[in-house]
């Protein structure tokens, strides 16, 4: 546990002791602010039955910046170490492979969670500045931030996996975007082809878009929770074995 803690803080520092982490934070805050203000303008034009939280996260701009956060956060995790050769130093120190995998994973996950702090304050500011009752309930806020945390857990794990596959950051980033895009498109199949096809329940089960819609209405559904937690563990398991395989292949 001590080794994990040392590695975890080293990774976390590498995000925030360089401009890199702050740049992503700034970018995320800007995009969150943009989608909120666009949605608020929409509310001015026409009356809406949905809440502000729901409408903000249903805006198409959300997926554009959201899916690009993950490659940026994760692409250098393992690929940079294997390119620079520091992986050799790391793995010849008395550390277990899972220490390395989990410390990197949780460091980027925590960074990802920090990215959502501005969005939370944006919604809080709405009530303070406008002095009108908030056009959303706190349940919706809790729901949307839980699903963001859950989706982030899986998508960061995808990024770790992609980064572990190659020693080039660019390729790692592209592979990560690829995985996320395919995952997102699979969720859209019921949207394009309707829910009459046989596999429709499966596709709607893994659809992040639908999960987001459900949770941002304030409905905490346990099925997506299980889905994200199990797939995250499985992806990390594969990442661990990939990293070990490179060392132990015959």
């Amino acid at each position: 546990m001590r080794t994990f803690r040392i590695l975890f803080f080293k990774e976390l520092k590498s995000y925030f002791l360089s401009p890199f982490g702050w740049l992503i934070c700034g970018f995320a805050a800007l995009m969150q602010a943009l989608s909120l203000s666009t949605t608020m303008k929409g509310f001015l034009d026409s009356p809406r039955s949905e809440s502000l939280v729901f409408a903000t996260f249903q805006a198409p701009t959300f997926w554009f910046y959201f899916l690009f956060l993950f490659p940026v956060l994760t692409m250098r995790l393992f690929s940079e170490e294997s390119r620079a050769g520091t992986l050799e130093g790391l793995l010849t120190a008395p550390v277990k492979t899972w220490h390395v995998v989990l410390s990197k994973y949780f460091a980027s996950y925590v960074t990802y969670l920090i990215l959502w702090i501005p969005a939370f304050f944006h919604f809080k500011l709405f009530t303070i500045i406008t002095n009108v009752p908030p056009p959303f309930s706190s349940g919706e806020l809790v729901g949307v931030f839980s699903i963001l945390a859950l989706m982030g857990a899986l998508f960061i794990a995808f990024g770790c996996l992609a980064s572990c596959l190659t020693s080039s950051q660019i390729i790692a980033g592209v592979v990560c975007v690829g995985i996320l895009f395919v995952h997102f498109l699979l969720g859209l199949i019921t949207f394009f082809y309707g829910d009459q096809i046989d596999a429709a329940p499966f596709f709607s089960f893994i659809s992040s878009r639908e999960h987001l819609a459900t949770f941002s209405r304030g409905l905490i559904d346990t099925r997506p929770i299980i889905y994200y937690l199990t797939t995250t563990s499985f992806t990390l398991f594969i990442t661990h074995h990939l990293l070990d395989y490179r060392r132990w292949k015959p």
Partner: peptide, 14 residues
């Protein structure tokens, strides 16, 4: 690994 001090070729460092 605890008993070895290893300096790899080309000394990779952070």
């Amino acid at each position: 690994r605890k008993k070895i001090g290893y300096m790899p070729e080309n000394v990779p460092l952070y």
